[in-house]
């Protein structure tokens, strides 16, 4: 989790990723942030996040993002 939080903070230092639970629903992250996050995650974890994975539920919390990364790593 610490590693992921570091990546997320690198993209949006102004967001408290540990506390926020509605990153998408409350429009805290915009589409540019999402693309930046996906690019970083793909590269860092050697995964391939697809368009179908860009669901609000997968990006509303850092925990959900980690769950998506873990799932794709296991696939």
């Amino acid at each position: 989790m610490e590693e992921l939080l570091g990546i997320l903070k690198g993209i949006r230092p102004d967001v408290d990723f540990e506390k926020e639970t509605k990153l998408i629903d409350d429009s805290i992250l915009d589409s540019f942030d999402i693309i930046s996050i996906v690019g970083e995650l793909n590269e860092h974890y050697d995964i391939e996040i697809d368009v179908e994975d860009l669901e609000p539920d997968n990006f509303n919390t850092a925990k959900a993002i980690l769950a998506l990364v873990t799932k794709l790593q296991e696939d």
Partner: peptide, 22 residues
């Protein structure tokens, strides 16, 4: 553009911006 003509923006994001960017 997140507050104006939201349905058009959402369509463009989901069917043009995301698929192209990824």
């Amino acid at each position: 553009w997140r507050r104006w003509h939201i349905t058009l923006g959402a369509f463009m994001r989901d069917y043009v911006f995301y698929p192209l960017s990824l």
